[in-house]
Simulated assay, not measured.
Amino acid sequence: MFPSLFVLLCVALLLADYPLQTDHQAGHKADHGAAGWRANLTHATTHVIACSFALLVAAVILDERVGVLPGVVAVALIGATHAWIDRRWPVAAWVRIARQQNWAAAGGAAHVDQTAHVLVLAAAALAITALS
């Protein structure tokens, strides 16, 4: 079950982060104040919906035994961690600690961001598999 859940959650991530993310969300999700949080949480909600749909596909089409409680908890954590990572300061902190400022300035920060999201998805797929 882990491989199919992981792939489906990764597809949901890509959909929510690229074609389903508006320019406004991308440009303002790390801003200070209510407008930044609104853009951030709207974007994170897109992830929750996309990941929920991915788990529904796993359960209905692939006949995977996805437990409701593990699925709900995993999707909630995916949404929360996505919002946290996308505030950008966690990625900036990692880049600073790892001494990767030049690489990050040349586009590497986006790779750190996506790697963090994929690690969360792997943990979620593993937890759902173990608990379902």
Score class of each variant (00 low, 15 high):
residue 52 S to C: 05
residue 63 D to Q: 13
residue 13 L to S: 11
residue 73 V to E: 07
residue 51 C to V: 07
residue 22 T to C: 04
residue 59 A to M: 05
residue 100 Q to A: 15
residue 120 V to S: 00
residue 127 A to S: 10
residue 60 V to F: 09
residue 119 L to E: 10
residue 106 A to K: 10
residue 120 V to A: 03
residue 7 V to N: 06
residue 45 T to I: 08
residue 42 T to S: 15
residue 129 T to V: 00
residue 38 R to D: 12
residue 107 G to D: 13
residue 123 A to Q: 02
residue 55 L to R: 06
residue 61 I to H: 05
residue 61 I to A: 15
residue 35 A to G: 11
residue 5 L to K: 01
residue 10 C to F: 11
residue 61 I to Y: 10
residue 127 A to F: 14
residue 25 Q to K: 09
residue 72 V to S: 03
residue 8 L to G: 02
residue 112 V to Y: 04
residue 122 A to P: 03
residue 53 F to C: 14
residue 72 V to A: 09
residue 58 A to S: 13
residue 92 A to I: 10
residue 104 A to D: 09
residue 37 W to A: 13
residue 129 T to G: 05
residue 19 P to N: 10
residue 107 G to T: 13
residue 44 A to G: 12
residue 21 Q to P: 00
residue 24 H to M: 06
residue 28 H to N: 10
residue 46 T to N: 10
residue 2 F to H: 09
residue 127 A to T: 05
residue 59 A to E: 04
residue 115 T to C: 11
residue 81 T to Y: 02
residue 25 Q to C: 14
residue 89 W to M: 00
residue 49 I to S: 05
residue 53 F to Q: 08
residue 48 V to P: 07
residue 99 R to L: 09
residue 52 S to F: 04
residue 83 A to I: 07
residue 88 R to L: 06
residue 20 L to M: 15
residue 121 L to V: 07
residue 127 A to L: 12
residue 72 V to Q: 07
residue 74 A to R: 02
residue 67 G to K: 06
residue 100 Q to M: 15
residue 33 G to T: 12
residue 16 A to Q: 10
residue 65 R to A: 14
residue 30 A to G: 14
